[in-house]
């Protein structure tokens, strides 16, 4: 994203001239953390509307050049917010502390999220952090970088890219006999100042999930979804936002994890890819959620594959505390 790398035309890094974009219409979409899910939703609209038959959607990030924290601060209110704002992690730390104080969620429960997701990442050759032997003690003894967030409670900065082909029904037949179909998409906003939202109850995730479940005919997400790739910039976010998405009652995200429901073998595995806690090339991160959801639906997840996935949820979360969701399925929406 130009905003984070501090330059214009960052798409040139993707080699648009040599990539299939040469002499074709190119549209650039950048919405912060949600960039990947915005790309995914725009890709869907472009093909589902009938304007294009086949398109390639690419998300990428090259964080070694530039600074995401600095870039994020510039996106916030210059008078009221920029002076004290510390990028994304400061507010995510506030959120974790408030969530913990309100519901008694413990640092150990948060550490379990990191252990789950990074253990999953060890089954994913595309994941950035490969830490197959990670333990709760290791996470809980890592450096405190913004109380209560320790180094391993937060996502890394990654470099990477992700691409998805969207095609209409006729074109899809030429490509594969085993596609993932987009069943529903939703975007929700709710924000004037960053301080309007305490984030642990992320209202936009609740609003977007109600819309996306209704359109896809999902009544009980734990029962009706087979896998979820959610956007968890911190371990605490996964606990809180599984609640916001309706997987558990408010304050029960820790219990959901403790009961094993979100583990690989659980009723609704969350982030078999390793999630954002293992890989975070920001402009690609939310697109990776969608790609991983599609991989699960198509049964191409190899060591990270959940058996018999019919329906998958993918989530994007962005700096203005908005949420984007997509539901993908094996069957077309009738």
């Amino acid at each position: 994203m130009d905003h984070f790398e501090g330059i214009n035309f960052s798409e040139m890094w993707c080699g648009i001239e040599s990539a299939p974009g040469y002499l074709k219409p190119v549209v650039k979409v950048a919405t912060g953390g949600t960039t990947g899910s915005s790309l995914a939703i725009c890709g869907y609209y472009n093909v589902a509307s009938g304007i294009y038959k086949n398109i390639l959607v690419i998300g990428w990030e090259k964080l070694n050049e530039g600074g995401a924290t600095t870039g994020i601060i510039t996106a916030f209110d210059p008078v009221w917010e920029r002076p004290s704002l510390a990028g994304a992690l400061g507010p995510l730390a506030l959120m974790a502390g408030m969530y913990s104080a309100k519901y008694g969620i413990t640092p150990e429960q948060a550490a379990k999220v990191t252990v789950k997701n990074r253990s999953n990442a060890a089954n994913n050759p595309f994941a950035h952090l490969q830490m197959p032997n990670i333990t709760i003690d290791y996470v809980m003894s890592s450096q405190m970088i913004s109380y209560p967030l320790r180094l391993h409670d937060v996502c890394p900065q990654s470099e990477g890219a992700c691409a998805i082909i969207y095609a209409n029904e006729e074109e899809t037949k030429k490509i594969t006999d085993n596609p993932a179909w987009v069943k529903s998409v939703a975007t929700s906003h709710y924000y004037t100042f960053g301080t309007d939202d305490k984030m642990y109850d992320l209202p936009t995730a609740t609003m977007a999930s109600k819309k996306v479940y209704k359109k896809a005919g999902i009544k009980d997400p734990i029962r009706d979804l087979d896998v979820a790739e959610i956007y968890e910039p911190t371990s605490w976010s996964e606990l809180a936002w599984t609640e916001a998405l309706g997987f558990a009652e408010p304050g029960q995200g820790g219990k959901l994890l403790d009961e094993g429901i979100t583990q690989m073998s659980g009723e609704l595995p969350v982030n078999p890819s390793g999630g954002v806690l293992s890989t975070n090339p920001i402009g690609a991160t939310a697109l990776v959620r969608v790609a991983e959801a599609a991989i699960q639906v198509m049964g191409r997840g190899e060591k990270r594959q959940i058996p018999d996935v019919e329906t998958a949820l993918a989530m994007g979360f962005g700096g203005s505390l908005w949420t984007e969701l997509l539901i993908l399925g094996k069957e077309k929406l009738r």
């Binding site: 104080a101 913004s146 967030l149």
Partner: peptide, 11 residues
């Protein structure tokens, strides 16, 4: 309502 101690470097 919430607090943290920011303990990491950035521009």
């Amino acid at each position: 309502e919430g607090f943290t101690v920011v303990n990491y470097p950035f521009v």
